[in-house]
Amino acid sequence: MVRDVWSKMERFLCNNPGDGIMPKKEEVVRPSGLSVLKPEEMVEYEGQCLGIVEGKVKYHGTDAAKVIKALLAEKTTDKVFTSIPKSNLALVK
Protein backbone atom coordinates (compact mmCIF):
# COMPACT_ATOMS: atom_id res chain seq x y z
CA MET A 1 0.00 0.00 0.00
CA VAL A 2 1.42 3.38 -0.97
CA ARG A 3 0.54 6.43 1.04
CA ASP A 4 1.10 9.80 -0.54
CA VAL A 5 2.27 12.41 1.94
CA TRP A 6 2.75 15.25 -0.53
CA SER A 7 1.65 18.58 0.71
CA LYS A 8 -0.60 20.57 -1.58
CA MET A 9 2.28 22.93 -2.33
CA GLU A 10 4.68 20.11 -3.23
CA ARG A 11 2.14 18.60 -5.58
CA PHE A 12 1.50 21.99 -7.19
CA LEU A 13 5.22 22.66 -7.68
CA CYS A 14 5.80 19.25 -9.23
CA ASN A 15 2.88 19.50 -11.61
CA ASN A 16 3.52 23.14 -12.46
CA PRO A 17 7.22 23.68 -13.08
CA GLY A 18 8.09 27.37 -12.97
CA ASP A 19 5.49 28.10 -10.27
CA GLY A 20 2.84 28.23 -12.93
CA ILE A 21 4.57 30.97 -14.91
CA MET A 22 3.47 30.78 -18.53
CA PRO A 23 6.35 30.24 -21.01
CA LYS A 24 7.27 33.19 -23.18
CA LYS A 25 6.15 33.16 -26.75
CA GLU A 26 9.53 32.09 -28.06
CA GLU A 27 10.07 29.48 -25.36
CA VAL A 28 9.39 25.83 -26.13
CA VAL A 29 8.74 23.65 -23.10
CA ARG A 30 10.02 20.08 -23.26
CA PRO A 31 9.25 17.82 -20.29
CA SER A 32 11.46 14.82 -19.55
CA GLY A 33 10.44 11.26 -20.43
CA LEU A 34 10.12 10.41 -16.74
CA SER A 35 7.46 13.10 -16.37
CA VAL A 36 4.87 10.57 -17.53
CA LEU A 37 5.39 8.60 -14.33
CA LYS A 38 3.46 9.19 -11.14
CA PRO A 39 5.48 9.54 -7.90
CA GLU A 40 4.43 6.02 -6.84
CA GLU A 41 5.75 4.67 -10.15
CA MET A 42 9.03 6.57 -9.74
CA VAL A 43 9.45 4.81 -6.40
CA GLU A 44 8.40 1.45 -7.82
CA TYR A 45 10.89 1.63 -10.69
CA GLU A 46 13.78 3.10 -8.70
CA GLY A 47 17.02 1.32 -9.58
CA GLN A 48 15.74 0.10 -12.95
CA CYS A 49 16.17 0.95 -16.60
CA LEU A 50 12.99 1.98 -18.36
CA GLY A 51 11.90 1.91 -21.98
CA ILE A 52 9.19 4.53 -22.41
CA VAL A 53 7.20 4.17 -25.61
CA GLU A 54 4.48 6.63 -26.62
CA GLY A 55 4.20 8.00 -23.13
CA LYS A 56 4.01 4.70 -21.26
CA VAL A 57 6.52 2.42 -19.57
CA LYS A 58 6.71 -0.57 -21.90
CA TYR A 59 9.98 -2.13 -20.80
CA HIS A 60 11.78 -2.13 -17.49
CA GLY A 61 14.47 -4.07 -15.68
CA THR A 62 18.05 -3.87 -14.46
CA ASP A 63 19.58 -5.09 -17.74
CA ALA A 64 20.20 -2.00 -19.85
CA ALA A 65 21.14 -3.97 -22.96
CA LYS A 66 17.81 -5.85 -22.94
CA VAL A 67 15.77 -2.67 -22.63
CA ILE A 68 17.80 -0.96 -25.37
CA LYS A 69 17.40 -3.96 -27.66
CA ALA A 70 13.63 -3.90 -27.15
CA LEU A 71 13.48 -0.17 -27.81
CA LEU A 72 15.52 -0.46 -31.00
CA ALA A 73 12.97 -2.98 -32.26
CA GLU A 74 10.15 -0.47 -31.77
CA LYS A 75 9.22 1.25 -35.02
CA THR A 76 7.88 4.41 -33.41
CA THR A 77 10.19 7.39 -32.87
CA ASP A 78 8.30 8.33 -29.70
CA LYS A 79 10.51 6.34 -27.38
CA VAL A 80 13.27 6.98 -24.89
CA PHE A 81 15.65 5.00 -22.69
CA THR A 82 15.93 6.21 -19.14
CA SER A 83 16.73 5.03 -15.63
CA ILE A 84 15.82 6.02 -12.12
CA PRO A 85 18.88 6.24 -9.86
CA LYS A 86 18.45 6.61 -6.13
CA SER A 87 17.18 9.97 -4.99
CA ASN A 88 19.92 10.34 -2.39
CA LEU A 89 22.94 10.41 -4.70
CA ALA A 90 25.32 13.16 -3.67
CA LEU A 91 27.29 13.19 -6.88
CA VAL A 92 26.97 11.93 -10.42
CA LYS A 93 29.89 9.78 -11.60
Binding site: P17, K24, V29
Partner: peptide, 14 residues
Protein backbone atom coordinates in the same frame (compact mmCIF):
# COMPACT_ATOMS: atom_id res chain seq x y z
CA UNK B 1 14.70 30.32 -29.70
CA UNK B 2 14.89 29.18 -26.08
CA UNK B 3 13.91 25.73 -24.94
CA UNK B 4 12.93 25.17 -21.34
CA UNK B 5 13.03 21.85 -19.60
CA UNK B 6 11.40 21.19 -16.26
CA UNK B 7 13.64 19.59 -13.66
CA UNK B 8 12.67 16.00 -13.02
CA UNK B 9 11.64 15.26 -9.47
CA UNK B 10 13.03 12.08 -7.88
CA UNK B 11 10.86 11.21 -4.89
CA UNK B 12 12.26 9.43 -1.90
CA UNK B 13 10.44 6.59 -0.27
CA UNK B 14 10.64 4.91 3.10
Amino acid sequence: MAFSFPYQWFPKSI
